[in-house]
Amino acid sequence: MMNAQNLATILLYMAVIFHLLGMSGWVVPKLSQPIELATLGLMLTALIVLRKKKRKTKRRPRKQPVEVEVMLDRAQEGESGK
């Protein structure tokens, strides 16, 4: 499976190739605008691929260790024994 960085790198390389092709003068002037738009699209797609989603995790209350429960039980038994 391809990770996000590799995909973004490939997209940016393609954008650079399209940009150089557009600047080279080999392209028919009628195609220069679509090539520029493709370059921008590839760069934006690379940015979107690299963006990391921030997930809000719900914090669960931590379960107390067994020792704490034993100490609480002992303390409660001591209070009830008075």
Rank of each mutant, 00 (worst) to 15 (best):
L47P: 02
L37W: 12
L20R: 15
L12F: 06
L47C: 12
V27A: 13
L21G: 06
H19V: 02
P61T: 01
R60N: 05
T39P: 03
P61D: 02
M43G: 10
P61E: 01
G22A: 09
Y13C: 04
L47K: 08
V49F: 02
L42R: 03
L11Q: 10
L47F: 12
K52C: 02
V49S: 05
V49Y: 02
M14E: 14
K58N: 04
P61I: 00
T57G: 00
I17N: 08
M43P: 01
L40V: 10
P34M: 14
A38L: 13
G41R: 00
T57D: 00
K53Q: 04
K53V: 02
V28M: 07
T57I: 10
M23H: 06
A46R: 01
Q33Y: 09
G25D: 05
I17Y: 04
R55A: 01
R55F: 03
F18I: 09
R60D: 05
W26P: 00
R51V: 09
M14A: 15
A46E: 03
L37K: 15
L40K: 06
K30Q: 12
S32E: 09
V49Q: 05
L50C: 06
L44K: 05
L40R: 08
G41S: 10
T57L: 06
P34I: 10
M23Q: 15
I17K: 08
Y13E: 14
T45S: 14
T45I: 12
R62T: 08
L20K: 15
A15L: 09
G41Q: 03
I17P: 00
T45E: 10
I48G: 05
L44I: 09
L44N: 09
L21Q: 09
G22I: 03
T39A: 11
R51E: 08
S32D: 07
L20G: 12
S32L: 14
I48A: 14
F18S: 07
S32K: 13
L37I: 12
A46G: 06
L12W: 04
L12P: 03
Q33R: 14
R59M: 01
L42H: 01
T45A: 15
S32C: 05
L12E: 14
Q33K: 14
S24H: 08
R60Y: 06
G22F: 01
K56N: 03
K53R: 11
H19N: 11
K53I: 01
I35E: 00
M43Q: 12
V16Q: 15
L12S: 10
P29H: 11
L12R: 15
W26C: 04
L37F: 12
M14F: 14
T45N: 09
